[in-house]
Design a protein around this nucleic acid. Structure first.
Ligand SMILES: [Mn+2]
Ligand SMILES: [Mn+2]
Ligand SMILES: [Zn+2]
Ligand SMILES: [Zn+2]
Lengths: 126, 126
DNA sequence: AGGCTTATTGATAATGAATGTCAATAACTT
DNA sequence: AAGTTATTGACATTCATTATCAATAAGCCT
């Protein structure tokens, strides 16, 4: 229905997200943008990130503290290997796990299976 | 250092958690307890659940809405298959995935790997 | 059984992420 | 250039969770 419009705010959020090394929160991203001189509002950062996650251009996950974190990523289905200390993130594919998840779901009579898989650890630099 | 004391409040929370069918929030559990006539305080429910999760007697995960949910469980390492609709939960083991996670972590030079694996779907009754 | 120490409780206040509000602004269309 | 309306952002609001702290009671000692 409603036509989307392009704004420098959306571009700024997308760009800043691309610059980040790992997963970042909306609050953090807003601070980064402000520190670079941007006048963008906090609510706008939240909205832009939610949109990016909706289109699949960004991945999101909950931090241990319950904060919602975002990260620029490829649009194909994938998972993450994340450093608990520095946040460094590696995208990984998990075909074995995909099949396993479907098998287990079917075995217990569950339909439309989806799944979350994340690996945490300490990277070589930490 | 500090010695733990036994209270009817801790027992009540543990028992109520055992009665629940799937994952429940501290708020929900507090309501259930109150509706059964208990005078237990909300903060106490939060503390008891955090303790149970600390000892491994309860498992916790974040709901899609960001709420922290708890569930009584076995103390061995395991994962969950959860109905998106009714919350019915099945404990599953995932030896294949355990090995896979360790392999992937090592391959990327990550130490002390841990992981989160949850499968969601619609159960046979939904 | 009574007394003492202090872990625990719970009403309340405080925190903080996330969302709602709405007048002002600025993308698009014509 | 003018009009329509999606978007913005300052601000208020919601709500889960945590912090306070005086009152209570669990465990220990005599
Ligand atoms: Mn997958
Ligand atoms: Mn596992
Ligand atoms: Zn690291
Ligand atoms: Zn179900």
């Amino acid at each position: 229905m409603t036509v989307k419009r392009n704004t420098w705010q959306k571009d700024a959020v997308k760009h800043a997200l691309g610059e980040a090394t790992g997963f970042v929160s909306a609050q953090e991203l807003h601070l980064v943008l402000r520190n670079h001189g941007s006048t963008i509002g906090l609510a706008t950062v939240y909205r832009a990130l939610a949109d990016l996650a909706g289109t699949g251009e960004a991945d999101s996950l909950q931090s241990q503290e319950g904060e919602l974190l975002y990260r620029a990523c490829t649009t194909e289905h994938h998972h993450h290997l994340i450093c608990k200390n520095c946040g460094k993130t590696v995208e990984i594919e998990a075909n074995e796990v995909e099949k396993w998840a479907e098998k287990v779901a079917k075995h217990h009579g569950f339909r439309e299976p989806s799944h979350t898989v994340e690996i945490f650890g300490l990277c070589g630099d930490c």
